[in-house]
Write a protein that binds this DNA or RNA. Structure first.
Ligand SMILES: [Mn+2]
Ligand SMILES: [Mn+2]
Ligand SMILES: [Mn+2]
Ligand SMILES: [Mn+2]
Lengths: 219, 219
DNA sequence: AATTATATTTAGGCATCCCTAAATAAATGT
DNA sequence: ACATTTATTTAGGGATGCCTAAATATAATT
C-alpha cells in the first residue's frame, strides 16, 4: 500500500521532471512540498525500497516505471477533479487547486474512469494543463512560454503553469482566459515586461507573469 | 485541526448513538472502527481534551455540541457523495460506501454546499438514509423495521440500515428497492423469517435481512 | 589545488495512531 | 456477599512522517 505522503512525493517528482526534464534534486522536492530537505532524504529512501524511484545518494532522484505510473494516475485524478469543480460545480479556476489536492488521493479506479466519462473525456484541465489518459499518456502540445516569444507575436493563451490563486485571480482581472487571443505590442528591455493587446485593451505585465503563461503562436 | 482518524471516531460515535440512543461504549466504537478497545480509550482522551466529547472513565462517551456538529458534517458529506456516485456516476448502491468513506474527509465547505446544489438538495441517500442539512438537522422519518411489523402489513421500502455490499447485492437480486411495495404474507414463528409479496413474486427472507430493512406502513 | 559555500544526508527527537499484554473496574451468577 | 466473567484502561512498544542541528559530500571560487 502507498500512503498519502508517498503519493505527494511521487507527484512532486513527476511535476518537477516534466518541467525541467532533469534528474530531480532533494532541495527541489522540499521546495515543492514545503518540507525540509532532511525529510525528503528520508522519504526517498523509503520510495527506493519500494522500487518507486531510482536513487543515487547525492545525485538526485527519478521515477521508476511503476513510480511514474502511479504519479501519472494521481496527476490525472488531480486534473479531472479540477475540471469537475469548474465545469460542473461552478468553481472558478483559482479555487480548485487545494480541493483537488485532497480529491486526488481518493482510491477508486472506477471513480476516476466514471468521472472521466461524466466530464466527456476532457483533454485539458481548467488551467490548460493536459490530463493524462487512462493509460498514462500526456498528449504532447506545442506551446511556448509567453516570456520567450518576440515582439509582434500573435497567439492564443493555452495554459498557465502555476495554480496559485493570487496569480489566477490577477489574470481573471486582466480578462486573460484560456483561449484569449493576444498580441505582443512591446517588450521593455530593462525588466522584460510586455505590453500586450487583448481584445481592444492594452495591458502591461511583468516577466513574472509572462513566465507562467503558455501560448500557441498563430499566423 | 482535526485529523482523519478523529473524524472517523466522531462519526462512529454519532452513528452508534443514532441507533441506540444511549451513551456509547468503548467496545462498540472498537467494533465499528475495527480497532482495539485500547486504541479507542486513547483516542477518546484526546477528543475529550479537544472538547469534542463528554467522557467519564468506565462510563462511556457522548458527543459534545461541537463534536456533534462536526460528526453531522461528515455524515452529511458521506451521504451526499453516495448520492452523487449513484445519481451522477451510475454506481450501484452497493458500491458507493467505501468510496464515500474516503470522500467524506475532503475539507471544503464550498464543495459540500455546491455538491448539495448540484444534486438538487436530496433529502435521502441511495440507501434511504436521511442527509443532514447544512445546519445539521436530520429530518425525522416515521419508519419501522420490517422485522417488527405483524403479518398482513403492507408497506413501502424506505431504507436499509447497513451498507454492506453483500446485503445490498442480495436485495437487488430479490428486486427489493427503495420505493418497492411489499406485503407480509406470513411470519415463521420458529426463526422469524418472513414470506413477502413483492410485485407478483413471493420471497422468503430471514430475520437477519428483515432486521436491516426500514418500511413505511401503508393503508 | 586549496578554500569556501552550498547541497545533501545522518542523528536524535517529537507527534500521531495503532497494537498486545497486563492491570483494574464493573457486571453477573451463585 | 463473594467469585467469576466481561469491559475498560494503562503500560510499553512499533510504524510513519515530520523537524532541527550536526556531519559530510559536492560545487564554486580564488
Ligand atoms: Mn495532494
Ligand atoms: Mn492544476
Ligand atoms: Mn471515513
Ligand atoms: Mn450510506
Amino acid at each position: 500500500m502507498i500512503t498519502l505522503s508517498e503519493e505527494n512525493y511521487l507527484k512532486a517528482i513527476l511535476s518537477i521532471n516534466l518541467e525541467t526534464k532533469n534528474i530531480v534534486s532533494t532541495n527541489e522536492i522540499a521546495g515543492v512540498l514545503n518540507t525540509s530537505p532532511a525529510s525528503v532524504s528520508e522519504m526517498i529512501k523509503k520510495l527506493e525500497e519500494k522500487n518507486l524511484v531510482n536513487y543515487e545518494k547525492y545525485k538526485g532522484v527519478s521515477l521508476s516505471k511503476s513510480g511514474e505510473k502511479l504519479a501519472l494516475e494521481i496527476l490525472r485524478k488531480h486534473r479531472l477533479w479540477e475540471t469537475f469543480l469548474v465545469n460542473k460545480l461552478e468553481f472558478s479556476w483559482s479555487e480548485v487547486h487545494d480541493v483537488a489536492e485532497q480529491l486526488e488521493h481518493v482510491k477508486s479506479k472506477k471513480l476516476t474512469n466514471k468521472l472521466d466519462h461524466f466530464l466527456n473525456y476532457p483533454k485539458f484541465d481548467p488551467h490548460g494543463e493536459p490530463i493524462p489518459s487512462k493509460n498514462g499518456i500526456i498528449s504532447p502540445t506545442k506551446r511556448v512560454l509567453l516570456s520567450e516569444v518576440p515582439i509582434k507575436t500573435k497567439g492564443i493563451i493555452m495554459g498557465v503553469s502555476t495554480d496559485e490563486s493570487e496569480f489566477l485571480d490577477y489574470l481573471t482581472q486582466l480578462n486573460f482566459k484560456i483561449g484569449s487571443k493576444i498580441k505582443i505590442l512591446d517588450i521593455i528591455l530593462f525588466d522584460k515586461s510586455m505590453k500586450i493587446q487583448i481584445g481592444d485593451k492594452i495591458e502591461q505585465i511583468s516577466e513574472e507573469v509572462t513566465n507562467n503563461i503558455h501560448i500557441k503562436i498563430i499566423e
